[in-house]
Design a protein around this nucleic acid. Structure first.
Lengths: 194, 194
DNA sequence: TCTCCATTTTCTTGTCATTCCAAACTTTTT
DNA sequence: AAAAAGTTTGGAATGACAAGAAAATGGAGA
């Protein structure tokens, strides 16, 4: 069926292997794991061999036993060398309706890989930032802003900060913030958000 | 049923919110997303409101449209504050002995905080990159390089890539890599490493 | 008001995760 | 050795619940 092709896309995650590894690491049998999770050993076996895809509740049950989060199963260990080269021309450009400028998406989702865990974020370049008055934003995550050109007034919460070319700031973007140009020239910079 | 309690454990992941956010970020309607994913708008609506938990194949279909991996849905964010403002003048400058240029450390160590885990990274600006021949590097982690000016030849493993101002690349820096200028002018760019 | 569009409800259906049980291995016991 | 005890897999049956269809709701204009 149509799902057939989609399911292939799940294989790279190596869910089965991960499950088996977790279990064997604790030298546990399928039956024992079955007791802890209230799942049948038969199914666990099928899951580990990729004959079957667990539902989220099922996967969570297993995760709870091993003390891992669900991310664990979807972050891949595969060595990814070069992930992407984003050339300026090939980028998607979206209007930054909130700020009034425009945003080039370089990476929509980046995997920062630390120890075992990964952090997702996206990386964007904005070339023009709101002229005079800009609406204020508030989005989940952290924002790392590096200003390449221009001068920018940034208000985070009640704090007003002026950035000049070459300055960088790292702040909690769940806090209400807004920005507007402080120079005649356009501002450009780089934003990394989680 | 017994699943009832387990499903509560899924709520913290905020799957629905994430789905909605992704969709709205591209100002897309349920119907339109439905077409791209071959899923009914009705179901998408239920997913976004947490009335339903998607199967993995279904979730993958959506993920593919937005260009995110499945991990995206299982990593959660937390509130952080303004961490630092680094002004150009106050920065520490170190010679980049490996590359031959010099490096300004903007942040020596940033904490990207996902779920419960933390990711350490540092953020650096390099203003001059190796003249002709540069030694090759190899350090743990991932590297995100954004080139601001100049032209740079980057060799990762056996692959040679030329970056121009405005280009960005994301690669595994555990792989041996080296770089040198491809232009007469100095190169400057930004590097984020884990 | 009415129309148009997007989202939500309700109800129904089909799929496929899940179970049960038996067969096939694997390792230990005597 | 063979038997016993334990662990993993295969297959058929079932039922839970994801997913679809269609109708209802709710806005936003005109």
């Amino acid at each position: 069926m149509l799902n057939k092709t989609i399911e292939d896309g799940l294989k790279p995650y190596g869910l089965g292997e991960k499950l088996r590894t977790l279990r064997l690491r604790k030298s546990m049998g399928l039956v024992e794991l079955g007791k802890h999770t209230s799942l049948s050993a038969a199914m666990l076996s099928k899951l580990e061999r990729g004959k079957l895809f667990p539902t989220l509740p099922t996967l969570l049950r297993i995760a709870l036993v091993f003390g891992v989060g669900l991310e664990y199963f979807f972050t891949d260990e595969r060595k990814r060398h070069v992930v992407a080269v984003a050339r300026k021309k090939e980028r998607l450009r979206f209007p930054d309706n909130a700020g009034g400028g425009s945003v080039d998406y370089i990476f929509e989702s980046l995997n920062f890989k630390a120890t075992e865990r990964k952090l997702h974020g996206f990386y964007a370049e904005f070339e023009a930032v709101a002229s005079e008055k800009s609406r204020s934003h508030q989005h989940p995550g952290v924002e790392l802003l590096y200003l390449i050109s221009g001068k920018l007034d940034l208000t985070i919460g009640s704090e007003l900060i002026t950035l000049e070319a070459g300055d960088a700031i790292y702040f909690d973007s769940t806090v209400r913030h807004s920005y507007h140009r402080a120079s005649k020239t356009l501002c450009s910079g780089i934003i990394v958000t989680t």
